[in-house]
Simulated scan of single mutants.
Amino acid sequence: MKKTLALWAALTAVALFATGCTAADADTPDRTATPREAPTSGGPAAGHKTPDAPDARAAAYRKWGLKPFAPAPAPPAKKPVVRAPGGPVPVVSDIPTKDKVVFLTFDDGAEKDPGFVAMMRDLDVPMTMFLTDAAIRADYDYFAPLVAQGHGVANHTLTHPNLRTLSQEAQRKEICGQQSKLAKEYGKRPRLFRPPYGNWNESTRAAAGSCGVDAIVLWRESMQIKNMQYQRGDKKLHPGDIILAHFRGPSELKGTTMTEMTANLLRHIQEQGFTVARLEDYL
Rank of each mutant, 00 (worst) to 15 (best):
K3D: 08
L7S: 08
L11G: 06
T19N: 13
T28C: 09
P29I: 02
T34S: 14
P35C: 10
A38L: 09
P39T: 04
P39H: 08
S41Y: 14
G43R: 11
G43M: 12
A53D: 12
Y61T: 05
K63G: 13
K67C: 05
F69L: 09
A70T: 13
A84W: 00
G86M: 04
P88M: 07
P88H: 12
D94T: 10
T97Q: 07
A110K: 11
E111I: 08
R121W: 07
V125W: 01
V125D: 00
T128V: 01
R137I: 13
R137L: 13
D139A: 07
D139S: 05
F143R: 07
F143Q: 10
P145C: 02
N155R: 10
N155H: 06
L158C: 09
P161K: 00
E174G: 07
E174F: 11
L182E: 11
K184S: 15
K188H: 08
R189N: 13
P190V: 15
P195D: 09
Y197D: 11
E202R: 02
C211M: 00
L218Q: 01
W219I: 01
I225T: 05
K226F: 03
Q229K: 13
G240E: 13
L253G: 08
K254E: 13
M261E: 15
Q270C: 02
Q272S: 03
V276Y: 00
R278F: 12
E280H: 10
D281A: 12
